[in-house]
Design a binder for these strands. Sequence first.
DNA 1: CATGAAAAAGAAGCGC
DNA 2: GCGCTTCTTTTTCATG
Lengths: 86, 86, 86, 86
Amino acid sequence: MQVHIPVGSEGEFVAARLKSIVDRVERLEEEKSAIGVDIKDIFTEAKSAGFDVKVLRHVIRLRKKSDNERDEEETLLALYKSALGM
Amino acid sequence: MQVHIPVGSEGEFVAARLKSIVDRVERLEEEKSAIGVDIKDIFTEAKSAGFDVKVLRHVIRLRKKSDNERDEEETLLALYKSALGM
Amino acid sequence: MQVHIPVGSEGEFVAARLKSIVDRVERLEEEKSAIGVDIKDIFTEAKSAGFDVKVLRHVIRLRKKSDNERDEEETLLALYKSALGM
Amino acid sequence: MQVHIPVGSEGEFVAARLKSIVDRVERLEEEKSAIGVDIKDIFTEAKSAGFDVKVLRHVIRLRKKSDNERDEEETLLALYKSALGM
DNA sequence: CATGAAAAAGAAGCGC
DNA sequence: GCGCTTCTTTTTCATG
């Protein structure tokens, strides 16, 4: 493992850059988390409206999966072609 | 799999509401996922700048925990290590 | 977080138990890892025989998935029934 | 998806070999998975005995790394923490 | 070495 | 509230 320990003004610069990275990631993670809350709110509302949240989640998951499956079929097809030298 | 959708005006309403819920959740999940990509990009950039991504993640995770939590976990870890002669 | 710091003979006992746990887990992880090597060997052999390893992995993954899908369909059906009060 | 299986005696042979490969891998993956269950059981038992499973996993992970690796990662982590004023 | 897939770990949500 | 499952995240591995 390479551990470069910067000194003086270079170290200042590295520390500043580190702070910038951490700040930006934390900022984005907050946004991400906030969206998670929004999603949760929708499910809560749905539950109040009489929907079964577990079923809802499952349905949404299946819809996402369908998209993925399509991609995957294409991938596998391409793999077979490649494996057969086509 | 066949999903039964109730008919009549009430069923229409329920179906519309269901559709709205699913749409909104899917929309939000896309946003969430996009932010995930942004975060990944930052780590990629950080890596190019010479930072150790794994350690970066570790630090960010630590910052989320309160000081007490951090201390407690470290104490327990030290205890276990000591008991194992490490 | 509860951190119980045992003293005297009780501490000895706890340390012994900790060692036992760690030993057993490490032993099992070795076995697990050895099986991973065996699997890898089979793929190496398959490659020598002219099979495309990536495609093989994909096929095996799909077979596993098929089983899961069957389970999942049943689960979803049960969920729908439950959601519809059946 | 339709998978083309070559016909004729050569195809038979290839198909048989393919089947053998898939069977053996699946068999080994089952064993691997069973050991995973055993490990999980030990952690469950440990939890009942009052151990903190998360910290246990952490210790076991640390033991896998060489002393040098451990030191290096800790050094880098300390460096980052210091740069962030933690 | 960088990308992408598979496994493991951790966190969250659910029902009992 | 607690355990159990499900979902997300992290880490590791393999391949090009």
